[in-house]
Amino acid sequence: MTSEKPKIERRGLLLVLSSPSGAGKTSLSRALLDADPHIALSVSVTTRKPRPGEVDGRDYIFVDEKTFKSMAESDQLLEWATVFGNSYGTPRAPIEQAVAEGRDVLFDIDWQGTQQLSERTAGELVRVFVLPPSADALEQRLRTRAQDPAEVVAKRMAEASSEISHWAEYDYVIVNADLTESSAALRAILAAERLRRERMTGLSSFVRGLQAALT
């Protein structure tokens, strides 16, 4: 007869995915969210205009420059950065509440935002960098998206080398040649990080109870 699995309290973790645009971090994020109901996507604040199909409050919180500046100056953002002329940031309050309640949060942000999160939430942060299998594959993916004009694609390709130079600042690196394999690797990382002893705040009391029952 099997016994019910004990629930051991733990702090939530912050899982960051970064990559040059077009390497596949958004596809990996969506696959993880579909496969794992115990992690939620952090909704960033941005001054960027919505793309077709994007919904305010679900994909991003769309604000004007004045509102964004006010949030940054009043310390309402855990991190923020300007990318390709648009500002992006992470609201502080919902993230801190999620971690305290043992809920995991997924971030689709760049290296600048990751550095800021590292300074403020080092104990909760798990950093994963996603690389394309080749430069040709990256360019093809950018062109296939068909959401940006040719000049934007060229600019993103030019920026890719600089972005990739930050790969060594991350805990894990996934070369995204195959989405299925990369998704499996990402799920394995998350499973292992959830079991880190220092995150399991209820482990000591569980072990003490187990020892007491054995003596």
Rank of each mutant, 00 (worst) to 15 (best):
M1P: 05
S3L: 11
P6T: 07
K7T: 01
R11F: 00
L13A: 00
L14Y: 09
V16F: 15
S19D: 13
P20F: 04
K25M: 10
S29C: 07
L32Q: 03
L33I: 02
D36T: 02
A40D: 14
S42K: 02
S42E: 10
V43M: 06
S44Q: 15
S44L: 14
T47D: 04
R51H: 02
V55A: 00
I61E: 12
D64V: 08
S70P: 03
E73W: 09
E73P: 09
S74K: 02
L78H: 14
Y88D: 03
T90V: 15
P94N: 11
A100H: 10
E101V: 03
I109K: 00
Q112W: 04
Q116S: 06
L117R: 11
A122H: 10
V128T: 06
F129H: 00
L131S: 14
L131G: 00
S134D: 10
D136W: 03
L142A: 10
A146P: 03
A150T: 13
V153D: 09
K155V: 03
A158V: 11
E159N: 06
I164N: 00
H166K: 10
W167G: 06
A168D: 14
I174R: 01
N176D: 04
T180Q: 15
A184P: 00
A184S: 02
L186T: 05
A191Q: 13
E193K: 08
R196N: 04
R197L: 11
E198C: 01
R199P: 05
T201G: 04
S204D: 12
F206A: 13
A213V: 04
L214I: 12
